[in-house]
């Protein structure tokens, strides 16, 4: 076999192997999605949005409590986490820069936090908040979700602001703008689609979290909006219903899984669309 023939053969082998691996991955993904969609659509009806949780065997049982709980937890975590992340990211990029030791320590710490298992964050919040307060609560869940969300938004903001060309900053300074106006009116505006994508990805990331909520907001089978008390979430409800032996609860579990997946899929698609639109410009 000549050298060229050898290379052509290696090329073919590698191509077949990588195509095969990709096909296996996609096949499993499609399998999961189709099972989810088939079971989810079958389980969804109006009752889900009208009724709270009920003991097994009740007609009038739904997911209203979990949907509202989920919205409260994720919504308030977003309200707290987004400004924290954006301000922090702005500090890193605009006041710290790439040479600042403090900024680089913060960058490393957030990168570690992003890859830390979320259950660790959950137990941390349990130790510093739930245990001293004496009970599970919505606020504890919100704190856990915020801690998970902030590093994602912080780093995306940091990266996106650094992509803004420095000549744009200089041009604003050259017109006599003070630094805070340069940042607010020119730099952040120039990076706003990228920052928005970071926010969407951060929200999508925490929307699917279960482990940190198990230790913090825990669960409630009925509607509760008092954040000082345990509160239902789609993820924990799904976990409980899906692992229960009752068929009607399992069905509700499928419905919760379907709604949650569609929500997160929607956020991800929206994030991609915004990025594509920006690149076209």
């Amino acid at each position: 076999m000549t050298h060229t023939e050898k290379r052509i053969l290696t090329n073919k082998i590698v191509m077949v192997l990588s195509t095969l691996s990709a096909a296996i991955g996609i096949a499993f993904l499609l399998w999961i999605l189709s099972v989810l969609v088939i079971n989810g659509i079958e389980a969804i009806n109006w009752n889900i949005f009208i009724y709270e949780g009920a003991p097994p065997g009740y007609e009038q049982s739904g997911l209203k409590h979990a949907l509202i709980g989920q919205l409260l937890l994720v919504g308030i975590a977003t309200l707290i986490g987004v400004p924290l992340g954006i301000f922090g990211g702005t500090y890193l990029s605009e006041y710290g820069g790439l040479k600042s030791r403090l900024a680089n320590v913060i960058r490393d710490v957030s990168d570690i936090m992003m890859s830390a298992p979320s259950i660790v964050i959950g137990s941390f919040v349990y130790a510093i908040f739930v245990a001293p307060m004496g009970n599970f609560s919505g606020w504890a869940g919100i704190i856990a979700l915020t801690i998970i969300m902030v590093p994602v938004i912080l780093r995306t903001t940091d990266d996106m602001l650094q992509l803004v060309p420095s000549t744009l900053r200089e041009a604003a300074f050259a017109l006599g703008a003070p630094k805070y106006k340069v940042i607010l009116q020119v730099v952040i505006r120039g990076a706003k689609t990228g920052i928005l994508t970071g926010v969407l990805l951060g929200v999508a990331r925490v929307s699917g979290e279960t482990a940190p909520l198990l230790f913090t907001s825990f669960n409630d089978n009925f509607l509760n909006t008092d954040l000082s008390q345990p509160i239902a979430s789609l993820t924990v409800t799904m976990f409980n219903y899906a692992t229960s032996p009752y068929e009607d609860w399992q069905k509700l579990g499928w419905a919760a899984a379907f709604i949650l997946s569609m929500f997160i899929l929607g956020l991800n698609i929206l994030g991609r669309l915004i990025l594509i639109k920006r690149k076209r410009k």
């Binding site: 000549t167 200089e170 041009a171 006599g176």
Partner: peptide, 20 residues
Amino acid sequence: MIKLRTQIGMIFQKPTAFPM
């Protein structure tokens, strides 16, 4: 600096239109 830069303006090598 703020006053100086309104008295002495600058045009850069590449156009620097602000995102607005």
